[in-house]
Design a protein around this nucleic acid. Sequence first.
DNA 1: ATAGGTTTTGTCAAGCTTTTGTACAT
DNA 2: ATGTACAAAAGCTTGACAAAACCTAT
Lengths: 296, 296, 296
Amino acid sequence: MLYSAAVQNDAALRIGELSKRSGVSPELLRAWERRYGLLRPTRSAGGLRLYSLDDLERVREMRRHLASGLAAAEAAALVSRPAQVAEAGHGMADAARAELTDALDSFDEPRAQAALDELLSAATVDTLLTEVVLPYLRELGDRWERGEASVAHEHFASSVLRGRMLGLARGWGRGLGPLALLACLPGEQHELGLIAFGLALRARGWRVAYLGSDTPVETLTVAADSLRPAAVVVTAVTAARVRTVEAELRDLAARHRLAIGGAATVDGARAAGALVLTGDPVAAADELTLHQAAGR
Amino acid sequence: MLYSAAVQNDAALRIGELSKRSGVSPELLRAWERRYGLLRPTRSAGGLRLYSLDDLERVREMRRHLASGLAAAEAAALVSRPAQVAEAGHGMADAARAELTDALDSFDEPRAQAALDELLSAATVDTLLTEVVLPYLRELGDRWERGEASVAHEHFASSVLRGRMLGLARGWGRGLGPLALLACLPGEQHELGLIAFGLALRARGWRVAYLGSDTPVETLTVAADSLRPAAVVVTAVTAARVRTVEAELRDLAARHRLAIGGAATVDGARAAGALVLTGDPVAAADELTLHQAAGR
Amino acid sequence: MLYSAAVQNDAALRIGELSKRSGVSPELLRAWERRYGLLRPTRSAGGLRLYSLDDLERVREMRRHLASGLAAAEAAALVSRPAQVAEAGHGMADAARAELTDALDSFDEPRAQAALDELLSAATVDTLLTEVVLPYLRELGDRWERGEASVAHEHFASSVLRGRMLGLARGWGRGLGPLALLACLPGEQHELGLIAFGLALRARGWRVAYLGSDTPVETLTVAADSLRPAAVVVTAVTAARVRTVEAELRDLAARHRLAIGGAATVDGARAAGALVLTGDPVAAADELTLHQAAGR
DNA sequence: ATAGGTTTTGTCAAGCTTTTGTACAT
DNA sequence: ATGTACAAAAGCTTGACAAAACCTAT
């Protein structure tokens, strides 16, 4: 009794026996091992394959999958599948970004929207921005520099993302939090980063008033004097844009708390009396929020 | 809106299927359309008529009237025309525009959004555009010329409206209708009219791909060659913008159906071999739709 | 759904097997993919198409549409594309509610989610709540009283909506606004209204800490002492629930600003020294926000 | 109702690659 | 036992075709 039980559990079948019991030829068993890693038999001293009863069960499962119409590679993949439950955590962002990239590359707006929908029902706006949208924009910029993406792609992607982000922005002027007045400096057309920044601020309890791209500083000043925001934030991609209006910005900074984001050089901004926000839009929003929480 | 936007919702029947289900021959269906405007099917990208289930119901009603002894013209006149869907009272538009103006003038985004929300729950997108948004924009322009509105107001209002309209634009690339590729010419920043135009096209069954402001003609050409739209529509506020790129536009017009909207002079556009769309965005959408239905 | 994710879970069929199971020839399957994007199979390392069981379902749906008389292009456009709520002509909110009702009644969670997705891109959270979710809940209650809706329907709808609303609630504890501490009184299980209230507060700039259903007052007090919220809000559907813990609530009200929502009688709440919030969750949020803005 | 042209859509073919069971030589 | 080879089966892409269904205009 003890004996037979031990044999049952540890049974070491040679390939001929496994073949007989499973009805699969030895050659094919070896091929499946080599090609798909379906089995991992131990070896006898002489090098013979020794299989367990588990292995027999795996072979039978393989046959069932084959009989149901799956091809060998897919059948084997299903057998060897350990317990691949939710990898939802990290792979999701990558998968989503890939899907978004693919959709936007083929000018497929509905698919891009669907990918964003899917994401939004499982993640915060912050996560959406840091994990998907901002990395996508960086990647798009890189590809554009390498000549792998056309200007048309960039325009199309910008439009879709801008529309979506402005959709998320709805109502960002409401509430009890401190007010941030946002604008791009004159000549500046890239507003996606600024909108992302606004969304990140909103997620941190701010109210947002948004003036958009290419805003004259005078315009900005008028709005600031009227709204009395807790912070005025402008972006500029190049330092030159900041220098051109440095004097005006200094005036503005004298009357309101001013911050500058984007790639503008630190020096130019400092000269204008502004707080410099470094890093991506979400990091910048954290920075400004800290500053606000501390400085009042 | 002239007829129900539910077309996009419903199964899209071709004329043969509608004929089978209604028992009316395709020829007669076309005749009723031509003579009495009984139906206004959307069109597929290739020009085929696409009917909704509402349309089927309308044809059946027509047959009942005929069976009861009415002449065709009278029967058709009795069939409930979708055009007659009652819009909310007329005073509502004025009141809404006043509310919107007031809210935007005081930089109050939430109130502006609320006004738009309210409108949208009682009116079609077309009505929103023709009765409220476009008049508001004209009025804002006038006030700006008279010095009664600041640039800040204009920027703020633009941002809010653009965000809202792009929200409504979501999914406008989806569906069965002909595809329109939209872009602003180089140097052109005012995209609100173009977005409104896109929304109006969408309500008429088109699919829309949108490239946004300040689009180089070369970019546009790349996108057009890739997407093969039924129409490429560009806008330019000044004739100068058109002249600058006239040669390139002529090239584009040789390969795709090109239309120009905005305030561009007729001459410049004609010289470029483009169809000229006059009037406001909604009228222009009607015009292009007619042209599309006829011109193939 | 992002296809790539689904493939991981499902058996991976090659085109021949999909063809056998669906009765559609491989050539046609490829043509449908190319022409209408009906399927989006992953690829094996060698380039073979790998389909999921979802894909099989889509092909079957396609065939059903074809059998019903639709042409291929239209059939494909309908597959897995739920009604486009946002395009409904008049009364967007009504159409959306109808779609939501229909989806939830047929236990079709994906369709319900899609309807909510669509809405959220064209309306604020406030509008979603006041125009769609809350009316839907009232309607469901009515139908339940009339015996037209089963307990199963109510459970299903509740869990879908709760999940979605909690999704929207993500991150609502972060930021700069005043903090509201939310809980249902002991014995109270209906938390949907309270979550809606929290969302409305969030849209008004509050931070929210949420304790959920059936919270002992003592627990609540401990949390309040630790968090020092600007307001503590509890809900109870019946006045009896309030009376039972009236003494404890009076203690709590002595140390924190306390508000009571739901159908609790005004008297009971007043006796407990609490602010009474009347009306639906959104109105209640307005009320509390006004109170907060005034009272500091 | 017909004529003359276009769009749609299922099917097929040519030329090449991948997959997979089996066979064979070492 | 191992490694290589091989051939049938199944797939892939591109391009094209023809019948059916639709279009406009007369």
